[in-house]
């Protein structure tokens, strides 16, 4: 388990991180979301030891993370970077050796990852000759070469085509589920985070605004919303119902919010009396909606 406790970091007068605290449990995928400049990259750089915090601690398996522990972390920076003129296979082996893997093992692992990640290139190709999507796969392979005990990925999905997104999603899920590796990754694609992750951490202006399982977050902010479509209904037909107000109008219907214990069945009865009910469902707030709500609050 990875624990960040009270991480604080300033760049000159700018406070990049202000008391950032959250947890990445074993075997779970944690989405790290926030707007540009909210502190995601700074946080991840501190976790992997590229930056030092001004205050706070990174705790890995119960002890402050040191250089030895960090050699077992896998990191994919947002600024992708490989030696452009080095051959792909050679490069992966070299990077793995920096993490203490011997050449034979690194050789085998590189070949294996080439297949798993569906890199469309020859091992002897130079990195600069690869398409961006393939470079990105190689970059991810570099992070996975030494079978890391923790994965920290900064925007791993950006720039991938839909197939690439699926492949990467599956690889991350396997790392977490089968090998129990805690995985934390940042992303702007919130519906993707929602689909892939167990937990999210929401950061804004260097502060963690929300942290937890996506379902819990939803439940905590769950409003009782109903989406209803009726053919031939009157304007504001729901005004007769106590505790029901219009949340928003849709082209073919409405979203209503139920408060004060108003009963959905009662709403359905009134709706049916209005005409043919084409659609009647509970509305789950999406992660994007949660995100907007939390950030605006």
């Amino acid at each position: 388990m990875l624990k960040l406790i009270g991480l604080t970091r300033r760049f000159g007068d700018v406070v990049a991180l202000d008391d950032v605290t959250f947890t990445v449990p074993e075997g779970e995928l944690v989405g790290f979301v926030g707007r540009n400049g909210s502190g995601k990259t700074t946080t991840m750089r501190i976790v992997v030891g590229v930056l030092e915090p001004d205050a706070g601690q990174v705790i890995w398996r119960g002890a402050p993370a040191d250089a030895v522990a960090r050699r077992r972390f896998g990191y994919m920076p947002e600024e992708r970077g490989l030696y452009p003129r080095m051959r792909v296979h050679e490069q992966l082996v070299y990077l793995a050796r920096l993490h203490g893997i011997d050449t034979t093992e690194a050789d085998r692992r590189a070949t294996e990852l080439f297949e798993t990640l569906q890199v469309e290139a020859k091992p002897s190709d130079r990195v600069e000759s690869l398409s961006l999507g393939n470079q990105q796969r190689v970059q991810l392979a570099a992070a996975l070469m030494h079978r890391p005990e923790l994965l920290v990925l900064d925007e791993p999905f950006s720039g991938l085509d839909p197939t690439g997104v699926d492949v990467l999603g599956a690889v991350l899920a396997r790392e977490a589920r089968e090998h129990g590796v805690p995985v934390v990754f940042s992303s702007h694609q919130l519906e993707l985070v929602e689909r892939v992750c167990d937990r999210v951490v929401l950061i804004e202006r260097g502060r963690v605004l929300a942290e937890g399982a996506i379902d819990e977050l939803r439940a905590a902010r769950m409003r009782n919303l109903l989406r209803i479509e009726i053919v031939g209904a009157q304007e504001r037909w729901f005004d007769v119902l106590p505790g029901v107000r219009l949340e928003r109008s849709l082209p073919d219907g409405v979203v209503l919010e139920l408060t004060d214990g108003a009963d959905p069945q009662r709403v359905l009865d009134v709706a049916r009396s209005q005409g043919e009910v084409r659609h009647f469902s509970r509305v789950q707030p999406t992660l994007s909606e949660l995100f907007r709500e939390v950030v605006q609050a």
Binding site: V50, Y75, P77, R80, G81, L82, L95
Partner: peptide, 17 residues
Amino acid sequence: LEEKSSRVVEILLAAMR
């Protein structure tokens, strides 16, 4: 400079100081 401009330095720094 090459390691800096190709950004490879960041993954190197994750493996060593």
